[in-house]
Design a protein around this nucleic acid. Sequence first.
DNA 1: CACAATCACGCAAAAAAGTGCAAAATTTTT
DNA 2: AAAAATTTTGCACTTTTTTGCGTGATTGTG
Lengths: 249, 249
Amino acid sequence: MLKQERHQIILDKLKISKKVLSGKLSEELLVSEDTIRRDLKELESKDLIYKVHGGALIKDNRVLSYDERSVADINEKKEIAEKAVKLIKDGQVIIMSGSSTNLELAKIIPPEINATVYTYSIPIAAQLSHHPSIEVIFMGGKLNKAAQVTVGIDLVNFIYNISADICFIGTEGIDISRGLTEPDWEVSHIKKSMIHASNYVAVMCISDRIMSVKRHSVVPIQKIDAIISDIDPSDPIFNDFRDFDLTII
Amino acid sequence: MLKQERHQIILDKLKISKKVLSGKLSEELLVSEDTIRRDLKELESKDLIYKVHGGALIKDNRVLSYDERSVADINEKKEIAEKAVKLIKDGQVIIMSGSSTNLELAKIIPPEINATVYTYSIPIAAQLSHHPSIEVIFMGGKLNKAAQVTVGIDLVNFIYNISADICFIGTEGIDISRGLTEPDWEVSHIKKSMIHASNYVAVMCISDRIMSVKRHSVVPIQKIDAIISDIDPSDPIFNDFRDFDLTII
DNA sequence: CACAATCACGCAAAAAAGTGCAAAATTTTT
DNA sequence: AAAAATTTTGCACTTTTTTGCGTGATTGTG
């Protein structure tokens, strides 16, 4: 096992359980406690952990650490992203909402795709900046620190004045009668503006949230062109949706 | 077996298992470990892998893989930041340019400071999102992937319509006759707008760049209220600056 | 204060990496 | 096709890194 592997494992463990014990790590990684201590020492010198007697604690003010706080349902989100990426065509103008599913999507856009992406999410912009041929337009506003996205009237105005081929929207709730719904009032307006600006509206929804309703309406179901989920499109949960002119993926 | 074949195999292996060991590769590819080491060295120089003692790891496109060690003159910049942070007062509205010095500054703003920061740099916004009481306004535009900042006319317009107590500007060149200068034309306009929007203009300049001139003028020396550098304010290099009404820190 | 757990330090063995050089393989030129 | 130039490779050698262990110091707990 390489030293750097151990370091990564230690950091991952810290992310999950906030603390690690030298003795336990030594057993789990099959190295002596001295080695673990040296690992912790090195990680501390890099300011990545907070070393204490007996082990180490997570260092919260890690520089630039939007790590997948939203690792919830990460596999489902990856599956959705796999399906969604097939909708992206060369030369398109794309709007991506700030959802973690969209972050997964951003990670897997093939390098040969040449497109313009509008986003208001810092992690998505950062991810796309690794892509060789995507032009990224970051839409500014007041920063929501928790979600690492911008919000506010300036953002909504900006989006109302652009136009795009397709938008990908991460979804909190979708059902037949209320359509797309959102727990956050401000975000509901942002999503509404994205849909207004786009020719084709793709919503990405993990199966748990299908047929769930949140507080604020975004748009009725008729405005949506495609629902992308992690389950089979023929699943009976979609039956009511088939009356509408939308694609289930 | 050709060198490039091996390289491709190594990269493929990394994609699958995230790590390779020199010894194992040597066995599998039937070449000496020296050759493998040379391969890894070359791949690392192309920035394709992350070489470590014993083998190599996949180069993870970490979100914001902003490597502190790769910043030039990092210690000088930290010193400048230490001086600059003293100018920040509670309740201020601050504009920060996208320089790495400003990133260092963002790291050390005391938690008790309550302020609003306008920025167009992704790393700075991400850094400030850890601060408990700073409101961050991210100013959007086209993303410059290398510098991780936004640029463009929308950004400049936005800045012209705000007003701030103080702006901190990282400096490429400053001298008496030309004032503040910039190699990049677009950035020169961004900086000009920042200065226009601010009551107090602080430029942060590592000593090497004092009295150096770049292509595009930003503002004459009279518009600047403070120069913050990594050297002593009494240093003779500043002598010519003392004729002007500005503070040398 | 006692007692166990944890840590720091030096040491030595093992593994891996860098270095210089000559042989082998490959590419380019004649 | 042969010769020359260049690149690639393996080997012997030294240096560096990593690791585990012993010893004594330090820390936390009752």
